[in-house]
Every structure is written in structure tokens, then in C-alpha cells.
Simulated scan of single mutants.
Amino acid sequence: MKNAIWQQEKIISITQTMRTQDARQIPITDYLERIGAKFTRTQQGTNGLEYVYHSPTRSDSKPSLCVNIEKNIWSDVPVGAGGRLIELVCHVHNLPDNDVKSALEVLDSIYPTVHSFSNKAARIMANNVSQTLFDASTPSIAPTTNNATGLNKKSAAIEVLKVQALFSYPLKQYLQNDRKINLNIAKEYVQEVTCRLIASGKQFYSIGFASGSTFAIRNKNFKGFAGLGVDISVFDKGTSKTLLFEGFMDFLSYLTAKNLHTPPFTTVVLNSSAMLDRFVQFVAQHPAITEIDYFRDRDELNNKTTGLETLEQLNNSLSHLKINDLSSAYPNHKDLNEWLIEHVSHQ
């Protein structure tokens, strides 16, 4: 707390001439408020508390610009951008990447005299308490609907060290016993990924599902991404019907429940609900698609609206297609995997 207050006092005393080190002290949340970006909610992301905004650079029905409060960094997963304040200024004001001089001139115009930040930003700084994300052995963070933040910054928060066939007993047990996934099926789609948290150097291993040029990673205590380049995962069968899943665990649950090693239709795994626009682009590039079976999360069971909002966005963006809300098959469960766990447990 004392350190946070000292930081706040340091910020307010910044001189009029903006320098790069001065810009790094400005809370990104304050800058976004000053340019009129629309704040929507807070969430617990991969690297700590995040503030989520609608992107000021485009019309996005689903807010995707996330700011990590503790680290003062941002990421916008659908466009693959992120970094510190300088990168955000370049991104928002359509400046060339790393045009530091022009970005500082923009900030000088926004903060012409002293840097007296907004009340909300000051409260964030004063109330900021450091959080330990990892214990001595493994990542520890509560799973959330969207943990993609931190992936598409200029440098990754998590580095992939090694990729191999699924081997470790704890990971197999997590899939088979905790998640009730058929291991023989899972091994065709997931790998064991050894990762390192760049900030601390701590290593851990997890289940990895290919997502663009990186991996969606998961173990008993962690859910997130490693490396750079997240994207949707596509299994193109050339069919007119497409199966749509929010995460790979639901995709594996579907295959397990049906006892299938390959899906019968073209299948897309979003890997993050923030990637819905990428799916819409995929559909636009495949005019043969006429019907979508969407296995969405039923967040309304936890008094949240994310799943319903995603369904609405899908209907609005693809109104010419038949979209089936397949969550009606598990009305009392938050997702397909939760249904599978209960179904298998009672057999």
C-alpha cells in the first residue's frame, strides 16, 4: 500500500515535458477514460485484475480490450495487439508501430501541464495490492470465461519450452478422472506443453490444444494461453453444418459423449469468446456453411450474460444462417463438460 501511494505521488509530480519513462507511469485506464473509451466490467485474468473496455478503434459489440491493472499493460486479442501505453497510443491514433516521438506528442496534448489523473485511476493505484499468481510448484488462478488477456502483447507473458505427447500422470488423471474425457480420443488433439512464466522464471506443465501459432493451455489450477498468435481452431470437413465450441474441453466432451475420434461435421473451437469475430470471418470465407450448432456456455446459471450476449452477436452477424443453441441439451449445467461429468458419474 505504501509503495502504491508513493507511485501515485510520483505520477502527479511528473514534469511538463513528456518522456518515455514518464509515459510508463500513466495508468492506461486514465488514458482510456480521457479519450472516451467505454468501460464495461472487471475480470480476473491470467495475470491479475483486468479492466475491460470496448475498443476505441473499431465497433465491437463484444468488448475485448483488456487492461491489466497491476502490470499496466493492455491486450486486444481479436486484432492481435497489445503492450504498454506507448503501443496503445500508436494503435488508437493510427501511428506507425514504435513511433515513440509521435506517441509522446499525443500524450503531451492530452496531459498539457501536470499529470493529475482521474479519480478512478487514482483509486486503482491506491488500492492496488500485488497478487502472487504462482505457488512453489504450479500456476494457481481461478478459471474465468475469458483468460486470453496477456497473450497478444508485443512480448508473451508465458513462454513455451517443450511440446511432447501427453505423458505426465497428473495431466492424464485430470482429463480422465476430473473431466471425464476419453484419453484415447484426447491424445489425438492435445499435447503436453512445458511452459515458463517469463516474469518469475517459474516452470509448469499443462495440457496444450493448438490455437493458431500457440496453445490454449490448461491443468488443474490454470487456464490460459502460452506464446503469441492465438486463433480459432478449425477442423474443416467441407460440410454445410458447422459445430461451434467455446473451448477445447467442451469439444473433447462432445467427442467423448458420442464416442467419436473425429467430428462428423466441420468444427470450430473459439478458444476464447473474444474470438467470435474470427469465426464470423471464417464463415464468410466458406459460403457452403448454412447451419451452425453452437454449444455455448450457459453463464446465465451464474447470473452472467456472456453466453447469451455471444449467442445474440452470432445471430446478428450471421442472420442468414440457421443457428441452433445446443446448450438446450444441458439446461441445468454451465457447459457441456459439466454435463458430461455428471452424466458419467451416474452411469
Rank of each mutant, 00 (worst) to 15 (best):
A226M: 07
I110D: 00
K223Y: 04
E246C: 08
S213W: 02
N146W: 04
S319G: 00
L65D: 11
R84P: 11
A126Y: 09
A126C: 11
A37V: 13
E246M: 12
Q313P: 13
V106F: 09
L244R: 12
Q164M: 13
G83Q: 03
I26N: 08
N332A: 04
F248S: 02
A157W: 15
L311C: 12
D99H: 00
W6P: 09
I14Y: 12
T266M: 00
S319T: 06
E338C: 02
D135N: 10
L65A: 04
E300A: 04
S13V: 05
R41C: 12
N332S: 00
Y205V: 12
I158T: 06
L244E: 05
A136I: 01
L161F: 09
K38G: 10
A257T: 02
V77D: 08
W74E: 01
L183H: 07
Y111W: 02
A157N: 11
A142Q: 09
N98F: 06
F248M: 10
P287E: 01
V100C: 06
N332E: 03
A37H: 04
Y205D: 15
I158P: 13
P56C: 10
L175T: 13
S317Q: 01
W339I: 01
N303E: 11
I14K: 11
K71S: 15
T214S: 15
F295M: 10
R296I: 00
I5H: 12
P287F: 03
I35L: 04
C195M: 06
W6C: 15
L255D: 13
F134K: 07
I289C: 00
N315F: 11
G229A: 01
N315D: 14
T266D: 03
T242I: 11
M1K: 12
L65M: 05
A226T: 15
